[in-house]
């Protein structure tokens, strides 16, 4: 029997529902049994049920809505902005009003249009950076976990050293040296993420490596690369997907920080971080809208991505 012996470990109510469900004894049975349609459809049903439960979670709905709104802005850009984000000129520093709901900035451009158009940069750079960072991390983490020994020891020290460095300073330095193209920003953010992802993947691979299916693969003479990427990788996809969603959130944040510090796309590009950086100097004079709206845009996207990541995580980790 596999009922739990303790009921104190699970604290989060949403995970509990899943944990409790999975602790109920699986259908045991005789080998002579023909697995009927029932257990099979039951599994499919379970998956459908999980997906239905994710979709029902308010955090997932809200997150998806916000991301969709920014996604539409990014895709359509100046085709749907009320004014041109770059060229339109009105009176500088108009406070929010009917025709300029978010007010205007120091050069008289419409803040709403610039915030909407600014989604494009961040939605282009952040997910790419996250994907690339996770990709590097998976390869390095897999090698660390599977090969182990001196390679793992050495890489682990390097990873730790990397994590001890002040991230933003290094990124700024790299971008200043290499120039601030989109690809440089993507590359730098990806490299910054690699060690963290590698560590997560390494620990998953370590526990996978000790399972007997790996021994069995060795007994029939599989190559290392086959074992790592064909046998083990599919079994550690859960934590990798969770890591990816979390990293997208961090990437939005990091990209905004870099452009705030001046390492983003050059003006007059309507980048959120750059807008905050342009606007915050006049905050003291009571002109809050040039800072507040782009800052709120950054926050809303980071929060939305994290809401989605949370939903995915709690479901994947429970199943």
């Amino acid at each position: 029997m596999s009922e739990p012996t303790s009921h104190d470990e699970v604290t989060e109510p949403t995970t509990l529902a899943f944990a409790a469900a999975s602790e109920v004894p699986e259908p045991a049975g005789g080998v002579d049994a023909v697995i009927g349609g029932q257990p099979v459809s039951e599994r499919k049903q379970a998956r459908r049920e999980n997906w239905r439960l994710i979709r029902r979670r308010p955090s997932f709905i809200i997150g998806t809505l916000i991301v969709t709104v920014w996604g539409v802005c990014a895709l359509l850009g100046d085709r749907i902005t009320p004014h041109s984000p770059l060229d339109y000129r009105s009176t500088p520093h108009l406070s929010p009003r009917g025709d300029f709901p978010f007010g205007t900035d120091a050069t008289g451009r419409d803040v709403l249009s610039r915030v909407m158009a600014g989604a494009r940069d961040v939605l282009k750079i952040a997910p790419l950076a996250a994907v690339l960072g996770v990709l590097f991390g998976v390869v390095i983490g897999m090698l660390m976990g599977y090969i182990g020994g001196w390679f793992d020891l050495g890489m682990s020290r390097i990873v730790e050293a990397f994590l001890a460095l002040p991230v933003v300073l290094i990124a700024l330095l790299a971008i200043t040296t290499l120039g601030s193209s989109d690809w440089v920003v993507i590359g730098v953010v990806a490299v910054l993420f690699t060690p963290v992802v590698a560590r997560t993947v390494r620990s998953s691979v370590l526990s996978e490596r000790s399972l007997d299916y790996v021994t069995s693969a060795n007994l029939r003479g599989e190559k290392r690369s086959f074992i790592m990427f064909r046998e083990i990788l599919p079994n550690v996809m859960g934590p990798i997907i969770v890591e990816l969603t979390v990293r997208v959130g961090y990437a939005v944040f990091t990209v905004a920080t870099l452009s705030f510090l001046g390492a983003g796309p050059p003006p007059p590009s309507p980048d959120w971080g750059a807008q905050v950086s342009d606007g915050y100097r006049v905050l003291g004079a009571g002109i809050w809208w040039t800072t507040f709206f782009p800052a709120a845009a950054i926050a809303s996207l980071v929060i939305a991505v994290n809401l989605i990541a949370d939903s995915v995580q709690s479901v994947l980790e429970a199943s």
Binding site: M1, S2, E3, P4, H7, L16, A17, A20, A21, E23, V24, P25, E26, P27, A28, G29
Partner: peptide, 22 residues
């Protein structure tokens, strides 16, 4: 009895110590 027949559930129920979904 074989696994899944309810032995342990009976034991836990005897002390009213069922999992939360029980």
């Amino acid at each position: 009895g074989e696994s899944g027949c309810g032995k342990s559930t009976t034991a836990y129920a005897a002390l009213r110590y069922l999992p939360r979904n029980g």
